[in-house]
Design a protein around this nucleic acid. Structure first.
Lengths: 358, 358
DNA sequence: ACGTCGTACGCAATCGTATGACCGCATTAA
DNA sequence: TTAATGCGGTCATACGATTGCGTACGACGT
């Protein structure tokens, strides 16, 4: 910048004013402006965001705190986050709140993150009290996405999990299912929202839930497999399972296939999230679409707004989106099991193949 | 920091020296050290990385330039990157080199990235000349991962795609396949390495490749489906297909199922990458394992090293890792097709179910 | 008694940018 | 003629930390 000033024959302050061309109380002649711009371009000038930030200006950075982004759901969310942020001229720095070295690392992540304009938290972090504490006492505004029912500490954008679970269960019941299991895929620190919704709905509908019909497993493909095997080993196994996650549901599909159980004729499966993948599993997964883009977009918008105007109300508020049921080929009436034998004879999947639209 | 100095009754420079306790030519009394540390802790001092970076010190940031991280392969790679970086005390900032708004955005991404200690490029970016140009002329060291055969401009860590493809094809040939198709899932900017390896190997082995046996599609699930349908519509369709990507392979599995083709009895499928998902598809996917963690770890190591010591040789060098064949249930001898009818009668997947170990 | 040396620390410049305070000049109003 | 005003721009300083250099002080040697 000093070089530009020298070349253009003006002072450094003038250069600064020209380059940001912000509304200033100091007028600049158009001719000078031209000269400076030219020099800047010729010298290939790039503003140094560090120096900018040092002056208290915005760094155009949004911090993302996420636990585990091998989880395809959060991977998708992060991509959305990056896209939304960049569309608004912001960059994203990753803070990894990993469970293992947890406290130490989590803390560091936040410290290093301090020079962000805002922080977006993806997923629930109730098990990381020090991180939350840091965030709470810090000066950087925080927006929480998919916080679940945790005590509201930050502005939150969330999804109506209860409505989603109910929609999935109602779909199964409409098909004629009554013995419905639930696979509760747990993320560390996550709350029990979807599981509770299941329990509440089923209690109201059928009075009680058979023992073993709710399986709690880690949110991985292998977790889904394990849970399905456990549920099918029951004396009176369910004819359908709902899962709290597509990831687990994909594991379920694999386990069912490996054990020779035809989905959907012998077992119906409902996922949750509608990952990109869900439309392309074998068979394609009936699931609940999570409006990821909308949620993240809203979150970024809010985060930036809070970052720009620190005086803005930071009192916790919550916005809730609705998931929508997407019916594909992994659910069918339990009565269909009668015709299953003849169906498989003509090649597994022939029936659904005819309706394979996505 | 000034506050600390005041509280501890020393000068701010002393505080700086104590807090970094770096090897300095200025000795500090142990007692003073204690006093300063105490004051710093009580005041909850957090160093401001901006000011640090301003003085030319390292910002402990690694920039990641990636095209599209909805691709599960890159999502996994990014997670690995974040983990490896944080294990070394670095954070990661995301630069999105999206294909659409490409040039403009790509450029911006890099500019904003300037204050990183190093940049890691994930995937090939040959179609973004301006980005490459920026990277080349910049002062920040760059390490390229999965660059393919592009002209070597940066230190590169890569995988031996040719060996991988050959291993997959040899596996199919060993099973007795001769009519083998290839689904070339293309990432924008990517080169044709895997496809070329296929063509070369098959030419040498069988003399020629039937028309239509090589399908080029975008690297998506839908791309895989489309390619499989095209290949099966040929007058003499292949008995096996290799894909350049697990993502496409999953699409293939879905399409085969939807069209009533049993995998592996009527069609063998070989993937490439060994995503986490690959072990849990229906049926589990035979594929080539990409040593993602090793590659990324090596890349981060190198990037940090280059960042720390700018005098280090930055001349392009390449390190190559070997993929390894993972045999699961999506491949079988074409002769098995004879017994396919009876096999499906007892429920699809019963056979592989018995061998469902991962 | 005076010079020397090692120890322990302070002073002040510096990085790149933003910005309030001032300044010279011309034109216009009083 | 003088003062006020507008224009076009420069000066100096601040942001928070790092770091070369200077310096005060006690101990020690001669």
């Amino acid at each position: 910048m000093r070089d530009i000033a020298a070349v253009a024959g003006v002072s450094q302050s003038t250069v600064s004013r020209v380059l940001n061309d912000a509304p200033t109380r100091v007028p600049i002649a158009a001719e000078t402006r031209e000269r400076v711009n030219l020099a800047a371009r010729r010298l290939g000038y790039r503003p140094n965001p560090l120096a900018r930030g040092l002056r208290g200006a915005s760094t155009m950075l949004i911090g993302a705190v996420v636990r585990d982004f091998s989880d395809p759901f959060f991977a998708t969310a992060i991509e959305a986050l990056a896209v939304e942020a960049m569309a608004r001229g912001y960059n994203v720095v990753l803070g990894h709140a990993h469970g293992h070295v947890d406290e130490g690392l989590a803390l560091t992540a936040v410290l290093e993150t301090r020079h962000c304009d805002a922080i977006v938290m993806l997923g629930d972090m109730q098990d990381q009290p020090r991180l939350l504490d840091d965030l709470r006492t810090g000066t950087v505004p925080v927006v929480a996405l998919w916080q679940g029912t945790s005590p509201l500490e930050f502005p939150t954008i969330d999804v109506d999990d209860k409505a989603g679970i109910v929609a999935g269960l109602q779909h199964l019941i409409d098909l004629g299912h009554e013995r419905i299991g639930f696979i509760s895929a747990r993320l560390p620190g996550d709350n029990w929202q979807r599981q509770e919704a299941f329990v509440e709905f089923m209690r109201n509908r059928f009075g009680s839930i058979p023992a073993g019909y709710v399986q709690v497993v880690p949110n991985t493909l292998a977790g889904g497999e394990e849970a399905l095997r456990a549920v099918l080993a029951l004396p009176e196994p369910p004819t359908a399972v709902a899962t709290s996650t597509d990831l687990a549901a994909v594991g379920v599909l694999h386990a069912a296939y490996s054990d020779g159980r035809n989905v959907p004729h012998e077992l119906s499966v409902v996922g949750y999230d509608d990952l990109l993948l869900a439309a392309h599993t074998v068979p394609a997964l009936t699931t609940l679409r999570m409006p990821i883009a909308e949620i993240v977009g809203e979150g970024v918008e809010l985060a930036i707004e809070l970052g720009r105007d620190p005086s803005a109300s930071r009192e916790p508020r919550r916005k809730v989106f609705e998931p929508t049921l997407i019916v594909r080929q992994s659910t069918a009436s339990p009565a269909a099991a009668i015709g299953a034998a003849s169906a498989t004879e003509s090649g597994a999947g022939a029936i659904e193949g005819a309706a394979a639209a996505v």
